[in-house]
Amino acid sequence: MTTDPPPPPSARADARRNRDAVIAAAMRVLSADPEASMREVADASGLTRTTVYRHFPSREELLRAIFELVAREADAAAREATAGDPGLEQVMRAVARNAVALGQRFRFLAGYDQTVLGEAALTAGDDPLLRWIEVAQARGETRAELPPAWQLRALRSLATGAIEAVLAEQLDAAEAQQLLAATLIAAFAAPSAGDRDDPAVR
């Protein structure tokens, strides 16, 4: 039994460029019209429809690729924010800034079903954030009574709420970032020695 030889590197590079061009075109087109058709995406990409459909046989496949891009960017942002185990305020401000920025950039995805990705992709960025929370808690920087997994879940929920407020035009991006960072810091910061003696802040 014979097998076809693998495509040469130049062909693989061309295929990758074409795929990236389709994704970039889809982001532009869908940002302007979330209901735009695959034909409109193909036209905007500058490629033939045959080429577009070779990479993305369906709209769902194209959306999955865009969601995967979101997941990669979210994971990279979380790793950068927690690199070197910085302090709580620095991390929470970075988390707030990155969450709102990503929410704005990919706002056209808000109406789509994100479950097409699967749980692993939907929790992008969780691993570095959870590791940072565990380290920060061990050094007494975050609340000892809140399990790290719970802190992470609460962080995700608050970030989602901030993004939704921006998309609904209830807050502008700067306000959302500031409020989200302040809320995260207040929610997770371990009380000072003086506060621990005050029942009102326990």
Rank of each mutant, 00 (worst) to 15 (best):
P5C: 05
P6F: 12
P7V: 09
P9Q: 02
A13E: 13
A13V: 13
D14Q: 14
A15K: 14
N18A: 13
R19F: 11
D20M: 15
V22D: 01
A24I: 09
A24V: 15
A25V: 15
A25Q: 06
A26Y: 10
M27K: 13
V29L: 09
V29K: 05
L30C: 02
A32G: 04
D33M: 11
P34A: 12
E35Y: 08
E40I: 09
A44G: 11
S45K: 05
S45A: 03
R49P: 10
V52K: 07
R54D: 15
R54M: 15
P57A: 13
S58T: 15
E61A: 05
E61G: 13
L62M: 03
L62Q: 01
R64P: 02
I66E: 07
F67G: 03
V70C: 00
E73Y: 03
E73M: 07
D75R: 14
A76Y: 05
R79W: 05
E80M: 13
G84K: 11
D85P: 06
D85L: 14
D85W: 14
P86V: 12
E89S: 15
M92R: 02
A94D: 11
A94H: 09
R97P: 08
A99I: 04
A99Y: 10
V100D: 00
V100K: 00
L102F: 06
L102W: 02
Q104N: 00
R105Q: 09
F108D: 02
Y112L: 05
G118K: 08
A121S: 12
L122I: 09
A124W: 06
P128K: 03
L129D: 01
W132I: 08
I133E: 04
I133K: 11
E134P: 13
V135C: 06
E141C: 00
T142R: 00
R143L: 04
R143F: 00
E145V: 05
L146V: 05
P147A: 00
P148A: 03
A149L: 04
A149I: 14
Q151H: 01
R153V: 14
A154M: 11
L155F: 07
L155R: 00
S157Q: 15
S157C: 01
A159V: 06
T160D: 10
E164L: 04
A165H: 00
A165R: 01
V166H: 01
L167P: 00
L167G: 01
E169M: 04
E169W: 01
Q170V: 07
L171P: 02
A174N: 07
A176M: 09
Q177H: 06
Q178T: 04
A182S: 11
T183H: 10
I185S: 03
A186W: 10
F188R: 05
A189N: 13
P191L: 15
A193V: 03
A193P: 04
G194L: 06
G194P: 03
G194D: 06
G194C: 07
D197C: 03
D197H: 07
A200G: 13
